[in-house]
Amino acid sequence: MGLDKTQGRVYPPKPRDVYLYATCLVDQFAPEAGMDTILLLEREGIRVHYPESQTCCGQPAYSSGYPDEARAVASRQLTIFPEPWPVVVPSGSCAAMMRHHYPQLFAADPLLLARSQALAERIFELTEFLVHVVNFKQPDYGSDCTIALHTSCHARREMGSHETSVALLDSLAQVTVVQQARIEECCGFGGTFAMRYPEISEAIVSDKVAAIQATSAERVVSADCGCLFNITGRAARLDEIAQLDTPSLAGEHIASFLLRRTSKATL
């Protein structure tokens, strides 16, 4: 950790085919982010394959201290990508789980370890893939807007995707990205942490919401749905308390934001 995790990674040329590992959160709660990821990649001339047998990467159990349960779920994901194509993940957290923690999780089983290492080499977080493999460059058709970017801790510290998210947003001519206070601090979600210690989690996420709202950002964009749900869910609850009718802080997955800004038709 510390330095950009993508440093030293050798990127393949732009492929004709990729797998999409959409994640359980996207499948159930934010399918539009998954759909927009597919459209973004297809526009670049890449065929996107969605293995229907995917479920969850296993991170919830892994980080909660249930390694056997995590292995039972994670081992199912090892076999669903038979072709040697890259696996694109629109979540830094799940990508970090599959790229860095699968080999730890399967360390005691030589066969599964070998499989997880082979898969880890093919795991790409979406913004990392767009910058380093796709060389994403699309015109910005939107009007001037100012946004805040929140990068999840795993994306930032294990995948180096803060830099790639910034690079993508900076490539949009009419988009200004603000620098909210303590931008690198966690949003307080932490998976089951938020369930186990809701009061501490609330204290952290409230500060995150306040930091973003202290800027002129019209919305918060993130490559991780977990953080987005946490931040916008807290903001919405604060709106309820203040009896506001319109949301004071909107959130959008970076795939949806990028697609919207670079598409003529949908604006």
């Binding site: 499948d27 709660f29 229907e52 186990r196 809701p198 807290r234 609850r237 309820e240």
Partner: peptide, 20 residues
């Protein structure tokens, strides 16, 4: 604990696999 300090999470009417 989720709604201790956040609004409720709502599943989408159609999953990604349904949309596809």
């Amino acid at each position: 604990a989720w709604t201790y300090s956040r609004t409720a999470l709502k599943p989408a009417p159609k999953r990604l696999r349904d949309l596809l």
